[in-house]
Each structure stands twice: as C-alpha cells, then as structure tokens.
C-alpha cells in the first residue's frame, strides 16, 4: 500500500525498564472509558511470555508466503484480562467491606506474567517488549475489512478505522496477527491505536513516546534520510520489525536487547549470552546477530572515547532529535 509519507517508530529494548508509563499515558488519554477499559493500544509485555492478549503469537492472522490472508482468531475477554474494579468506598470510607480488593478474583491480566521469562536462576532471562499498532505498509486488518472502513492516511501512513463505515464484523481483529485491533462491545465497532494523530498534526509526538521514562522511542518519517529512523533502520540496521514473517510490513521497529553472560555451575562466567540468539531471531528475524554486533562495537567505541554517531542517537540526548515530525 503506497502512501506519500510513512511515519515510523523505533524502540530500543536495551533501554526499556518496563515502567508502564507509556501504557498508562495511552490508557488515560484514549482507553479508560466507554467500553475500551480492557484495551491497551500500547501495552508492555515481558518476553519470553504469553504477551497481551494472552498467546497472541499463536492466534494466526497476517499473510502466508503467497501473500494470502491467513486465518486468525479473536481473543476472548479472559485473554485480554478482565478490568477489575475496586471497593474503595466500602473498604475505605463506609467500612462495610473488610479490605480493599478487586470485584472478581483476578486470574489473568494484561501484564500477568511480568518478569517471569525463561531459564533458571541465575541464568533466567527476560526483557520488556512495548507494543502498539505497527501502522503496517501491508496491513492485515485493512485487507480483511469487507466494508473498506480501514484506511491508511496518505500524508503519514497512519492506519485508521472509519467509525462511520465500521459495522463491527471483526474481520480485522482476526486478521491482525499482533492483535492490535480491538472490538468495542459497547458501540459494536472496532477500535485501535491512532498513533495520536491529533497530536501528530500539531507537531507533537505520540503520548507513549513523549512520556517514555527510558527515552527508548524515536519517531520520524521513513523517507527522512537525516532523521533517526533512517539512521537506525537503514543505515546501521540495528532496528528490526517484530515478526517480519507475518507479512504485514510493520513500521514499528525494535533494537534487540543485548544480555549479560551466563554463569556456570560454580558461578564462573561463561562465554554465552543469557538470552539465546535463536530466541531473538524467532521474534525479529535474521538481522539480529548483525544488529547486536553493531551495537556491541559502537558501545565499545563510545566507551573508549572514540565517539559514535549511533550511540549518540541511541542515548537520546534530547527530544528534538528523537522526534522528527516534519
């Protein structure tokens, strides 16, 4: 799907601290009301893990090698996690409930397996994967919509659902392999991340990027050869799409995480990284090894005082250089 320009985001997983500030910024701006309570247009999940919604990586969707839509399924409410409520009034004011607690016994939530990961102490490993709609170049959601309600904006490639046209058929929910379209039962329409377009139109970054405590997010246009996206994705090739094999051609890219060495049985350090390369490749494709090598080399150059254009960008000294919105 060709557009005039394409906005894009890069996230450096080496810097994400899993603080959920982005999630909360997005939630309070867009999804804390009107049937959207269970939605996290931006979520941060621990990987390896089941993610949000639960097990989305095995729900199908996207395209097969021949370019045809693959069958996908819709997550259940439990997969998203029930947004439980609290008895603040009864527990803290009237004293009619014995203690403060959720109205249902929590059994799953959007961040239920936080920090679990894989492996055994001291060789356990995990990292945080913040996710939003990828505003794909070949959106599965768009291809699946029989109402032509989903479109990509020409000026910036943001993928939107026309709320007037949407009839709530949910083909898009099934077709997005990232499960970044949600069905709002209250209004019987599908809804998704809008890349904060009202902010973008004012020259401001998305709320998740603006608020990011770890300064892990860069925003810019793909065609801006002077911008951060071009440097990270094209020039140094350290930023990679999540699950490129799903065929939607994401415009959100991730710098994969380095990890400390493993320990041997006597506590000695081994020459083997904690997070297995194959695992990272299963998420971000073939480019991982080269990307990690580049980051290692450039980090060392910076540490040795030799300077590194790449590291200066990844450090993210100031927002003006991290967000290139024109």
């Amino acid at each position: 799907m060709t557009v005039k320009r394409q906005l894009s985001m890069v996230l450096d997983l080496n810097k994400c601290i899993g603080c959920q500030t982005c999630t909360t910024a997005c939630k309070l701006m867009w999804t804390n009301r009107n049937g959207r309570e269970f939605m996290y247009w931006n979520n941060v999940e621990t990987q390896p893990g089941k993610g949000y919604p639960r097990d989305y990586q095995n729900m199908g969707g996207g395209f097969d090698e021949a370019g045809a839509l693959r069958a996908g399924r819709q997550p259940s409410q439990e997969d998203y996690g029930i947004p439980w409520e609290y008895n603040y009034e009864e527990a803290l004011m009237t004293g009619t409930d014995p203690w403060l607690r959720p109205n249902v016994k929590p059994t799953w939530g959007a961040n239920w397996d936080e920090d679990q990961g894989e492996g055994d102490y001291p060789n356990s490993y995990y990292f945080y994967l913040p996710r939003l709609c990828n505003h794909c170049a070949n959106p599965g959601c768009l291809a699946a919509c029989s109402r032509n309600a989903i479109y990509k904006r020409q000026e910036d490639g943001i993928v939107l659902i026309d709320q007037e046209r949407c009839r709530g058929y949910r083909y898009c929910v099934n077709a997005c392999p990232y499960k970044k379209v949600y069905f709002n039962e209250q209004i019987s329409k599908s809804e998704k991340c809008i890349f904060c377009y009202p902010r973008i139109e004012k020259g401001l970054p998305t709320a998740c990027a603006q608020q990011c405590v770890g300064r892990i997010r860069w925003i810019g246009y793909r065609d801006d050869t002077e911008g951060p996206i071009h440097m990270l994705v094209e020039k140094y090739k350290v930023a990679l799409p999540l699950h490129p094999e799903w065929g939607t051609q994401p415009n959100v890219f991730y710098v994969p995480p380095l990890s400390p060495p493993k320990y041997g049985p006597d506590g000695e350090m081994l020459d083997e990284s904690r997070i297995p390369l194959e695992y990272l490749e299963s998420l971000f494709g073939d480019g991982v090894a080269a990307a990690l090598d580049t980051i290692r080399t450039e980090r060392q150059a910076k540490a040795d005082g030799k300077g590194s254009e790449l590291m200066d960008t990844l450090i993210g000294y100031n927002h003006a250089e991290m967000f290139k919105l024109s």
């Binding site: 603080c19 909360t24 947004p83 609290y86 403060l100 607690r101 959720p102 939530g109």
Partner: peptide, 22 residues
C-alpha cells in the same frame, strides 16, 4: 514497588490492573 514510589498510588486501579490486582 515494581513501578511506583513506595505506597504512592499503590491502590490505584489502573496500576493494579497491570499487576495482579492484589
């Protein structure tokens, strides 16, 4: 606290929904 400061907003439902609720 996992992502907070001591008990500040510890009982806030938006934060609790991102952990285990209890």
């Amino acid at each position: 606290t996992r992502w907070g400061i001591h008990s500040n907003w510890r009982s806030n439902k938006y934060m609790l929904r991102l952990q285990r609720g209890e």
